[in-house]
Amino acid sequence: MTVVTAEPAVREIAPRRRRTRDWSDAVLSGYLLLFFAYMFLPLMFMVAAAFNANPTPSVTDWQGFTLKWFEALPQDARFVQGLLHSLAIAGGVIVISIPLGLAGALILTRLQSRASTLLYTVLVSPILTPGIVLGATTMIFWRDAFGVEAGLFTAAIAQAAFIASYCMLMFMARLQRQDRALEEAALDLGASSVFVFRRITLPFLMPTVLTASLISFLQSIENYNTTFFAIGSSWTLVTEIGARMRFGLSPMINVIGVIFVVITVVAATAWVLAKRRSGNG
């Protein structure tokens, strides 16, 4: 008798639990939809408005499809010059950040000392420092110490201060996966330390050098806060965008936005596809 009466009770619990689960799943799905709308709708508006003839970027007040803003962009000297500045700074940042990040990572992964945590803290501190503080300190320091006025150079230095830390973290992650026996084997076979580094350690780190360069490049191109403070009277593409936005909106910025979106979507899709392929194969 007890068994018979107990059974329906058990049966009753299970579906109810499933029902609450379906319900919470539905809420979550709905929320995700909202969230991604929040993320993407503004970007879509931005892209759409780039093709609107209306000189005030808009999608509601549609004045006809046009490509004139795209044609206008390359004729805008300040944007073009800003882009060149951005590229120059990004190049400088890579040249500075990769060796510094690499050196820091190599030291931190092998330093067996209490000082290593302190060293680590100092080396990652720029990541945790507000960008404007980095920009301001760099601007002050280079002017006071060397008489170097704020400009492209100080902008590159200020960016490198924190981008080098990102590079270091990437190199450290890679080095932690290295088989120490490989270096020992090379050493044991009579290779000098320099030869081991050149022939074993560096080739192992090469993929990370490439990804770290790419990420440094992107970080540098995108940076606003730090650059804004450190660049003085010069400008980059992004600070120029910022400057113009303060005076009102121009569809030219939408055009730049479209270019960014296209590059990002292509790159991100390629990245995901590559990742899935390597994951499957």
């Binding site: 020992e184 084997a185 050493l187 044991d188 009579g190 290779a191």
Partner: peptide
């Protein structure tokens, strides 16, 4: 150092 010894491991 290991690289100067007549050993191989």
């Amino acid at each position: 150092r290991p690289n100067a010894r007549p050993t191989a491991l």
